[in-house]
Lab assay of single mutants.
Amino acid sequence: DEFHFHWNGRDIRVRGDSEELRRLIEAIKRGELSEEEIERAIEILER
Protein backbone atom coordinates (compact mmCIF):
# COMPACT_ATOMS: atom_id res chain seq x y z
CA ASP A 1 0.00 0.00 0.00
CA GLU A 2 0.99 3.60 -0.48
CA PHE A 3 -0.26 6.43 1.71
CA HIS A 4 -0.44 9.83 0.05
CA PHE A 5 -1.14 13.10 1.82
CA HIS A 6 -0.29 16.76 1.74
CA TRP A 7 1.35 18.47 4.66
CA ASN A 8 2.88 21.91 4.97
CA GLY A 9 2.91 22.41 1.20
CA ARG A 10 4.61 19.08 0.62
CA ASP A 11 3.36 16.05 -1.24
CA ILE A 12 4.14 13.05 0.97
CA ARG A 13 4.03 9.47 -0.29
CA VAL A 14 4.84 6.61 2.04
CA ARG A 15 4.98 2.94 1.12
CA GLY A 16 4.05 0.35 3.66
CA ASP A 17 1.07 -0.97 5.52
CA SER A 18 1.03 -1.28 9.26
CA GLU A 19 -1.35 -0.29 12.02
CA GLU A 20 1.34 1.96 13.49
CA LEU A 21 1.78 3.76 10.15
CA ARG A 22 -1.98 4.26 9.80
CA ARG A 23 -2.25 5.69 13.32
CA LEU A 24 0.65 8.06 12.68
CA ILE A 25 -0.84 9.37 9.45
CA GLU A 26 -4.28 9.81 11.03
CA ALA A 27 -2.68 11.76 13.90
CA ILE A 28 -0.89 13.99 11.37
CA LYS A 29 -4.14 14.60 9.48
CA ARG A 30 -5.98 15.47 12.71
CA GLY A 31 -3.25 17.87 13.77
CA GLU A 32 -2.37 15.98 16.95
CA LEU A 33 1.40 16.24 16.53
CA SER A 34 3.69 19.24 16.72
CA GLU A 35 5.34 20.42 13.53
CA GLU A 36 8.68 19.12 14.82
CA GLU A 37 7.21 15.67 15.54
CA ILE A 38 5.68 15.53 12.08
CA GLU A 39 8.96 16.55 10.39
CA ARG A 40 10.82 13.83 12.27
CA ALA A 41 8.18 11.21 11.43
CA ILE A 42 8.19 12.13 7.73
CA GLU A 43 12.00 11.91 7.59
CA ILE A 44 11.81 8.39 9.00
CA LEU A 45 8.93 7.35 6.75
CA GLU A 46 10.53 8.61 3.54
CA ARG A 47 13.61 6.40 3.97
Rank of each mutant, 00 (worst) to 15 (best):
D1L: 09
D1S: 07
D1W: 05
D1H: 11
D1T: 09
D1E: 14
D1M: 09
D1Y: 07
E2G: 08
E2F: 11
E2S: 07
E2Y: 10
E2V: 10
E2N: 08
E2A: 05
E2R: 03
F3E: 03
F3Y: 13
F3V: 04
F3S: 02
F3N: 03
H4M: 10
H4E: 04
H4R: 06
H4G: 03
H4A: 04
H4T: 11
H4I: 15
F5W: 05
F5M: 02
F5H: 00
F5V: 01
F5P: 00
F5L: 04
F5A: 00
H6G: 01
H6M: 06
H6E: 04
H6N: 06
H6W: 08
H6S: 05
W7H: 02
W7Q: 00
W7F: 05
W7Y: 06
W7S: 00
W7M: 02
N8M: 09
N8W: 01
G9P: 00
G9C: 08
G9M: 01
G9D: 03
G9R: 01
G9I: 00
R10N: 02
R10F: 01
R10A: 02
R10T: 02
R10P: 00
R10Y: 01
R10S: 02
R10W: 00
D11T: 15
D11S: 14
D11R: 15
D11M: 15
D11G: 04
I12W: 15
I12Y: 15
I12P: 00
I12H: 03
I12K: 00
I12Q: 00
I12T: 00
R13P: 07
R13T: 14
R13G: 04
R13N: 14
R13A: 09
R13S: 12
R13F: 15
R13V: 15
R13D: 06
V14F: 11
V14E: 01
V14Q: 01
V14P: 02
V14D: 01
V14G: 04
V14A: 04
R15H: 12
R15C: 02
R15S: 12
R15W: 13
R15P: 13
R15G: 08
R15D: 13
R15V: 13
R15I: 11
G16E: 07
G16F: 05
G16T: 09
G16H: 05
G16N: 05
G16Q: 06
G16M: 04
D17R: 05
D17E: 09
D17A: 08
D17H: 08
D17L: 05
D17Q: 06
D17S: 10
S18R: 08
S18A: 07
S18E: 05
E19P: 14
E19V: 14
E19R: 11
E19F: 15
E19D: 09
E19L: 14
E20H: 10
E20W: 13
E20V: 15
E20Q: 13
E20C: 13
E20R: 07
L21Y: 12
L21W: 14
L21H: 11
L21F: 15
L21C: 03
L21V: 10
R22E: 04
R22F: 14
R22L: 11
R22K: 09
R23Q: 08
R23I: 12
R23G: 08
R23L: 09
R23K: 08
R23P: 05
R23N: 08
R23W: 12
L24P: 00
L24D: 00
L24N: 01
L24Y: 04
I25K: 03
I25M: 13
I25E: 03
I25H: 03
I25D: 04
I25Y: 15
I25W: 15
E26H: 15
E26A: 14
E26S: 14
E26K: 13
E26R: 15
A27P: 00
A27D: 08
A27W: 15
A27Y: 15
A27E: 07
A27L: 13
A27I: 07
I28L: 09
I28F: 12
I28A: 03
I28Y: 13
I28Q: 01
I28D: 01
I28M: 07
K29F: 14
K29T: 10
K29D: 06
K29R: 12
K29M: 12
K29I: 08
K29G: 09
R30S: 15
R30W: 09
R30Y: 10
R30V: 06
R30C: 05
R30L: 10
R30K: 12
G31A: 07
G31E: 05
G31V: 03
G31W: 09
G31R: 05
G31F: 11
G31T: 03
G31K: 08
G31M: 06
G31N: 12
E32I: 12
E32D: 12
E32L: 12
L33F: 09
L33E: 02
L33A: 03
L33D: 02
L33S: 04
L33T: 03
L33V: 06
S34C: 04
S34I: 05
S34F: 05
S34P: 06
S34H: 06
S34Y: 04
S34G: 07
E35K: 11
E35I: 11
E35W: 06
E35P: 13
E35A: 12
E35N: 14
E36M: 11
E36F: 13
E36D: 11
E36H: 12
E36T: 11
E36G: 09
E36Q: 13
E36S: 12
E36V: 12
E37Y: 05
E37A: 12
E37W: 05
E37S: 06
E37R: 04
E37Q: 12
I38A: 04
I38Q: 03
I38T: 10
I38V: 11
I38C: 03
I38G: 01
E39N: 10
E39I: 07
E39Y: 13
E39G: 10
E39A: 07
E39D: 11
E39R: 07
R40T: 08
R40C: 02
R40E: 07
R40F: 08
R40S: 08
R40A: 10
A41C: 04
A41M: 09
I42W: 05
I42F: 04
I42N: 01
I42A: 02
I42S: 01
I42Q: 01
I42V: 09
I42P: 00
I42G: 01
I42Y: 04
I42L: 07
E43R: 08
E43K: 09
E43D: 12
E43N: 10
E43F: 06
I44H: 08
I44C: 06
I44E: 10
I44W: 15
I44F: 14
L45T: 02
L45W: 10
L45H: 04
L45E: 01
L45Y: 07
L45A: 03
E46P: 03
E46C: 05
R47P: 08
R47N: 13
R47C: 06
R47H: 13
R47F: 10
R47G: 14
